[in-house]
Design a protein around this nucleic acid. Structure first.
Lengths: 353, 353
DNA sequence: TTGAAAGCGATACCAA
DNA sequence: TTGGTATCGCTTTCAA
C-alpha cells in the first residue's frame, strides 16, 4: 500500500493524505481522522527511500566502529554505547547504520557515507591522539559528534567525553592515600586519546607526591583479558612488584585478578586493583562494586547523550539556526570504594612502609 | 555532484553514464573509461536513496538485537556476531541497519522495516522456544536468516546454528569420564531456544549413565558475571556441592571462578569448570584455553556465514530462482581440554569415589 | 482547506 | 552503442 493507492481509496489527493499524516496544520480535523484511520487499517507506512529522496534527509545516523587491525577485535564497550544511542535514535525516528571497518579504511568509509547521502549525521568512535577524521568530517560539512576527544586537533568540534584525566588522578590519589607506592597502570592502546589522558592523570598524581614514575609499571595495549593477565604476571615477577593495579577496563582487570591468584597472592589483601569501569551491562551488579574499587561511568548513558547531542545539532541546522559554539559535554566519573582496597589492603600497605 | 551534472559535463546522456558505471556490456570501452575517470575526478557517488527508489532494492540488511527488558542489557556476543556479518555486507556493498529494541517491540520493528522498505533482508537473533517472529517474517515475504533455531516452529526456514545439544552432551560426558558426579549447569534464559538444547544435551549425557538429574544444580538466567557468582556461591554452600560447573558463556564463568576462590576452594583442583566459549575477541587467547575447558565455537564466523547465506538468498530471489529447500547450516563446536579439568581435577574426582 | 504538478536522482525500457 | 523518457513514492510549491 503506497500513498497513491491510499489517496485513491479515500478519494482525496496524495497531497492531502501526506499533509494529514505529517501533521500539517492546514488539514481539517475530519479529514485528518479519516486519513489516519485508513492508514491504520491498511497498515500504510511511507517508503523510507522515497521519503528521503523527496526531503533530502535520510533519517539515519552512522556509527563507524573500528576493528583493530592487529587482533581483529571489536571493543565490547561499543555494544553498550550503541545500545544507548540506538534508544535515542529510535525515539526520534532515526535509523542506525553500523559500519565495522579496519582503522585504515575509516576515511573512505566516511567519505562514502557522506557523498552517497546515506546518513544525516555521524558519530566518531575511539579518536586517536591526532585524529584526521575530525578535520575530514568538518570539511565534508556533515554534522558529527566525537565520543572522546583528540588532543592534537586544534579546531573546535562537538564532543562528549568522560573526564579521564581527573578520574585517573583521583584513583591514583586514593591508592597513594592507602599507602601504595608501587602502582601499575594497565592502559589502552597508546594511540588512543583517552589512554593518553589517563596516563596523564596517573602521572600527575604521582608527581604531586614526588614519587618517581617507573616506566616498567606502565603498559599500553588492547584491553583483552589476556593482556591483563600477561602484563600483571610479568610485573608481579619483578624484584619490586606493584602492590596495586590501576586498570583501564574491567576486562583486562579480570586477567589481572587471575594473575594475582596464580602468583599465590591474596587479592584485595596483598595486591589491590582499581579499574575504570564502563558499567558494562553484563558485568553490572545490583548497586555494588564487588570486584574492585572502581572509577565508574556509564557508557550507555554516554551513548544516549551523544546521540541526543547529534540530533539536536541536526535539528538546528535544519531550522537554519546559525552554528554557535560547538556542543561539548564532559562527564565526571564516580569513584567508588570497593572491598579490595578497603581496610585490609590499607593495613597491608601500611605494614610495607 | 549528481548523475545529471556529471553527464552534462561529459556531454553524454545520463543513461550512458549510468550504464558505464554499472558495468553494462553495451558501453564502448572508450566511453566507459572516460566516464570512470570523470567520476573519479569529481568524486561522484550515486545517491543511495535515489538508487534504492529506482531499483526497488535498498541494499541494506537489518539486525534487530534484543535488549532484555529485565536488565536492559545487551548480550556482548552480538558485537562479535555483527562484526562478522558486517564484513560480509561491506564486501557485497550492503549497509547494516542495527535496531536495539525490547523483546516486546520486535514484531512492530520487523513490520516497520519491511513495510517501509528499509531493508532487503533480516537476521533474527536469539530466537525463543516458539518464536513468532519466524512465521511473521515468512508471512511478510522478506528474506531472513535465523541465528539459532526455534524448536516450536514447524515450518521450514533458513537458519545457522551451533550444535548446542551435541556440544553439551559431549562436555557433560567429558566431566563424567573424569569422575565428576555432581555437575552443575549454568544456562542462559530459559525462554531462549539454545538454552533448551543445551539442557537437553546435558540431561541426555546424565541419563545415559543413569545419573539422577538434580534440579537444584540447574540454573537459568541472563548470562552476567554476577549471575555466575551468585548461583555458584549458593550451590557451593549446599551440603552436597557440585564438583564441576558447565557454564553457557565465559562471562558467568568468570563469576563462577570468583565464587570458587571466595569459598576457599582451589579452582581446577577441587572444582572444575567447562564453558561454552563463543570465542569473544576480547577474551580470546593466542591458541590456548587458559581458564577453563571449553566447548568452543566462533560467533564471529557464525556472523559471517549467516550474512553470506542471507545475501545468497537475496541474490537467488532477485534472479528469479525458485525457492528450493531452505538453507540450513549446523556448525559443530570444538571441545578443548584445558588445564582446569586436567590430571589434578581427575585425581581429585577419583579420590572422591 | 484542497489539489495539480514539479521535483528528488537514480534505473531501465523502448527507439534510434 | 547511445539517448529520450517514464518511473520509483514521496514532499512541497503554487494555484484555486
Amino acid at each position: 500500500m503506497n500513498l497513491k493507492e491510499l489517496a485513491h481509496k479515500l478519494g482525496i489527493s496524495q497531497t492531502t493524505v501526506s499533509r494529514a499524516l505529517n501533521g500539517y496544520p492546514e488539514v481539517s480535523e475530519a479529514t485528518r481522522r479519516k486519513v489516519r484511520e485508513a492508514a491504520e487499517v491498511h497498515n500504510y507506512r511511507p517508503s523510507l527511500r522515497a521519503k528521503s529522496l523527496a526531503t533530502g534527509r535520510s533519517m539515519a545516523i552512522a556509527h563507524v566502529v573500528p576493528v583493530s587491525s592487529k587482533h581483529e577485535m571489536v571493543n565490547p564497550i561499543f555494544a553498550d554505547f550503541i545500545a544507548g544511542a540506538g534508544e535515542e535514535y529510535a525515539r526520534a525516528g532515526y535509523e542506525l547504520l553500523l559500519s565495522v571497518v579496519a582503522d585504515s579504511d575509516h576515511d573512505r568509509m566516511y567519505r562514502d557515507l557522506v557523498t552517497r547521502k546515506a546518513v544525516d549525521g555521524l558519530v566518531v568512535q575511539a579518536p586517536t591522539l591526532t585524529d584526521n577524521r575530525i578535520p575530514l568530517l568538518a570539511d565534508l560539512g556533515i554534522p558529527f559528534v566525537v565520543h572522546g576527544r583528540s588532543s592534537g586537533v586544534v579546531s573546535a568540534y562537538n564532543w562528549l567525553d568522560v573526564n579521564n584525566r581527573r578520574a585517573f588522578e583521583r584513583a591514583t590519589g586514593l591508592l597513594l592515600d592507602l599507602g601504595h607506592r608501587r602502582i601499575a597502570l594497565l592502559n589502552g592502546l597508546a594511540t588512543l586519546d583517552f589512554a593518553h589522558r589517563r596516563s596523564d592523570g596517573y602521572k600527575r598524581a604521582l608527581l604531586e607526591r614526588s614519587i618517581t614514575i617507573d616506566p616498567e609499571l606502565i603498559a599500553h595495549d588492547e584491553m583483552t583479558e589476556n593482556y591483563g593477565y600477561e602484563v600483571a604476571r610479568r610485573m608481579l615477577a619483578q624484584p619490586n612488584p606493584p602492590t596495586a593495579f590501576l586498570v583501564s577496563s574491567i576486562i583486562p582487570a579480570i586477567g589481572v585478578r587471575r594473575a594475582i591468584t596464580d602468583a599465590g597472592l591474596e587479592f584485595g589483601r596483598e595486591v589491590s586493583i582499581v579499574i575504570h569501569d564502563d558499567d558494562l551491562s553484563y558485568f553490572r551488579n545490583a548497586g555494588d562494586v564487588p570486584l574492585f574499587t572502581a572509577v565508574r561511568s556509564s557508557v550507555r548513558e554516554a551513548g544516549q547523550r551523544a546521540a541526543a547531542m547529534l540530533l539536536e545539532i541536526i535539528r538546528r541546522r535544519e531550522e537554519g539556526i546559525a552554528d554557535e559554539a560547538p556542543m561539548q559535554i564532559l562527564m565526571e566519573a564516580e569513584l567508588t570504594i570497593g572491598q579490595s582496597t578497603g581496610p585490609r589492603a590499607l593495613s597491608r600497605a601500611r605494614a610495607q612502609n
